[in-house]
Amino acid sequence: MAQVKALVITGYGTNCHAESAHAATQAGADSATVVYFSDLVAGRNRLEDYNFLIFPGGFLDGDDLGAAQAAALRWKFAKTKDGHALLDQLKAFFNAGGLVMGICNGFQLLVKLGLLPGLNGEYFDRQVSLSLNDSAKFEDRWVQLKANPNSPCVFTKGIDTLDLPIRHGEGKLIPKDDATLQALIDNNLIALQYAHPESGAPTQEYPFNPNGSPHAIAGLTDPSGRVLGLMPHPEAFNHKTNHPNWTRGIDTQLGTVLMENAVNHLKGQ
């Protein structure tokens, strides 16, 4: 059984790294190491030593130039101390079978870096983006999510619905064109959708869809199913008392189930 070694990247405004590392170990990872981006550049840590990479939430570079835009450029052009492109490490990590999760600001980074959605195998080529909520304000609330049972995503296997908190100002998915959106639908790369709490069906109705994302998109995967980016925060629902309705005795699945699925996938290799 393979050991699961999670790596959580922090720095430049990331602020959910501790919760993400805690959630990973709670989900069964053998270790969860928090590392600054600058440590990767300096060569003090290498992606090849891990198999579960987490880009947590926060406000990378203060969201200047757009959420995670500056960070995407940093990843694309950074060189390690020995002169090699850091992006090559990320490509090698993915090609070796590693799992990648991007949460909120991490999701924004993955789409602007082009690791998601990877349509037609075109990775690291931006095909979608995430932009300002239709409400033109920061949204902070709990939402219900519907998982796509036909998605290849290893993180969402066996999940029907899930309650998670969101807190973002730029969560509306913007596809490059109508054909790109249709390809996401046709290839089942929409892993999670905002759902109406009464019907359980995907919805465009505000505030249940908090940002106006088309087709109620809350999370995307890639064709391999090994990358998941989502705007809601699974790491923030790691105990039943996190849920606003916990005192009513409502038993809901913890958000860490997404990470449990990732851990089980890796341990099964």
Rank of each mutant, 00 (worst) to 15 (best):
D177W: 09
D177I: 05
D177E: 05
D177Y: 11
D178G: 13
A179N: 14
T180L: 01
L181N: 03
A183F: 02
A183S: 14
I185T: 12
D186C: 10
D186W: 06
N187H: 15
N188S: 14
I190M: 01
A191R: 10
L192P: 03
Q193C: 10
Y194L: 12
A195G: 07
A195L: 05
A195R: 08
H196F: 12
H196G: 10
H196T: 13
P197W: 06
P197Q: 08
P197R: 10
E198L: 13
E198K: 15
E198G: 02
S199Y: 11
G200S: 09
G200N: 07
G200A: 07
A201I: 13
P202Y: 02
P202D: 03
T203Q: 04
T203D: 02
T203F: 02
Q204K: 12
Q204T: 15
E205D: 14
E205G: 02
E205L: 12
Y206H: 14
Y206P: 01
P207Q: 01
P207T: 01
F208P: 06
F208S: 04
F208A: 08
N209V: 13
P210L: 06
P210C: 07
G212C: 10
G212F: 14
G212P: 12
P214Y: 01
H215W: 03
A216S: 15
A216P: 10
I217W: 00
A218P: 01
A218E: 01
G219M: 06
L220I: 11
L220D: 08
L220N: 10
T221L: 00
T221M: 00
P223S: 11
S224K: 02
R226T: 12
V227M: 11
L228Y: 06
L228G: 03
L228Q: 05
L228K: 09
G229W: 05
